[in-house]
Each structure stands twice: as C-alpha cells, then as structure tokens.
Design a protein around this nucleic acid. Structure first.
Lengths: 124, 124
DNA sequence: GGCGCGATTAACCCTTGCGTTATATAACCC
DNA sequence: GGGTTATATAACGCAAGGGTTAATCGCGCC
C-alpha cells in the first residue's frame, strides 16, 4: 500500500484496470500525463512489481504488466477493517447504506457490488 | 490517498478505526510503536487532517481525532474502479474460481509471487 | 494573574525518493 | 552478424518528507 502513495503509480494501476498492457504503452501514457521519462516510468513499474501489486510477463521483446488482484484484496481488507466501526454505526442509525454489504470473509472476493454512494445523512 | 502512503499514518487511521481518540493518546501509541516523538506524530495527524482523512474536534485542552468516513468512501471507490475488471471476470466464472485458485495454491501460497495462469483476454 | 499541561508550530538536519541522461541487456529483423 | 526496438539499470543531482529539539499557543486550575 505504500506503493500507492504516489500519483504516478496509482495512475499506472488505473491504466491496468482494464487488462494487461506492455511497459512501453504505460510509460508513454504516464509520460505524457505527468511529463516524465521512460526510465522514470520503468522504475515506478518496478516499485509496483516489488510491492506485489503488479506482475510482469515477458512477451518477446515486450513486458506485459498486469495488476495482481490479490494485492487489491489486501488493500480492500485493510479498508474494511478500518470501516467496520463506522459502517455498523451507520447501520444503527437505520441507514440503508450498508444494506448491500454482506461480506462474510475478511477479504471477500465478491466485492464489486457493495459500492454504494456516500449519501449518508451524517449531520455532524 | 497519498497520505496513506506512510505506515505511521496508516497506523494512526487504524487506531481510530474504533472511534475517536485524543491526539496525545495516538501520539503515545505510534510513539512507542515506531519510536518517534510526539511532535512527529502531531505532524502526521496534520497531514491526515489536511488530506481530509481525519477530523479534529477541540475538547478542552485536548483534540479529539476521528476518521472521516467519506474519505474512506473515496478510497473504496477508487479501489472498486480498478477492481471492476477482475471482479466481473471472477463473477463470470463463478465464485468457485476464487476458491479454486486458493486450493490450487495448496502447494504454495498464491500471495507472494505466484503468478498463476490468469489467462486474460486482451480487452483492448 | 501566573503556572502547568496538551498540542501545534518553527527551525533545522538528514535521509529518502524521484527525476534526469547515459548506458546495458535482450529479442527481433534484415 | 549488425542494426533496431523495447525495457531495464547505473550514476548522479536535487527537491521533499520526515525526524529532532526548542519555542509558541490555548485552555484549565490554584
């Protein structure tokens, strides 16, 4: 999660949200968006790889990067741990916010659906 | 989310997961855990506050800190956006995939560097 | 009012991290 | 083999972040 503290790296992960892409592709994207060079992007990829967030698969002369879902599970698990208290508190208020949340495990795999809006009437 | 890139700050958020606590309390906790001084902790709190992750409420001579749930919503939203692709992929294959993936990793945990064949069809 | 305590801010140092340019490695193509 | 392309590494400078100690602010208390 330390690796996600950098906007460039977050962007790289975002770019890989829809599937794997070659390093050069990614480097070009963040290069134009952040104005950084190819080696810089390469090192960001390295950091993400070593942090376990991405995987690199050699494909001829290219390297295909992809996100490692398990890593995202860990992030989500951490987030869930922190949110537990507040979520149940909102529950007690009778809000339906947490209605959709039925994660039974710590890092429930089926997590896509439990995203609700933040329309909580926290009048505080 | 940049603010969460620091382990001390993540720990502070964790400490506030169960409710609000005074600054001195938090400073003592991370102070003993990370071996940092009280002013250092105070500045971390400041960063988190300015990042919108925490709120501070004056209580006499103390300052009660608490997490701001909306901020966590944003993080979760980002995560959801990135996970969309794989989640729907897992959904399509059924939840068994996640379980099967786990069982297949019986020989070795699939958390470290185990890149199992996630035959991803290029969605581009 | 003066004092003590909790907390933040100021001033400063020093390490970390990110950026750059230049160079190395490796696969493909002729 | 020689050249080209794709990616990674090396070497290095510089700005930023985080740590410390010392000083400041605010509030409660005697």
């Amino acid at each position: 999660m330390d690796a996600l503290g950098d906007p460039v790296r977050r962007r790289l992960v975002e770019l890989l949200a829809d599937g794997s892409r070659p390093a050069g592709d990614l480097a070009a994207a963040v290069g134009v968006e952040f104005g950084i060079s190819q080696p810089a992007a390469s090192r960001h990829l390295r950091v993400l790889r070593e942090a376990g967030l991405l995987t690199a698969e050699a494909d001829g002369t290219r390297r295909l990067y992809a996100v490692r879902p398990e890593a995202l599970d860990e992030v989500q698990a951490w987030l869930g741990g922190v949110r537990r208290f507040w979520d149940q508190r909102l529950d007690a208020l009778g809000t339906e916010v947490a209605r959709g949340r039925r994660e039974r495990g710590a890092a429930g795999p089926a997590t896509a659906g439990d995203r609700d809006g933040d329309g909580k009437g926290q009048a505080r």
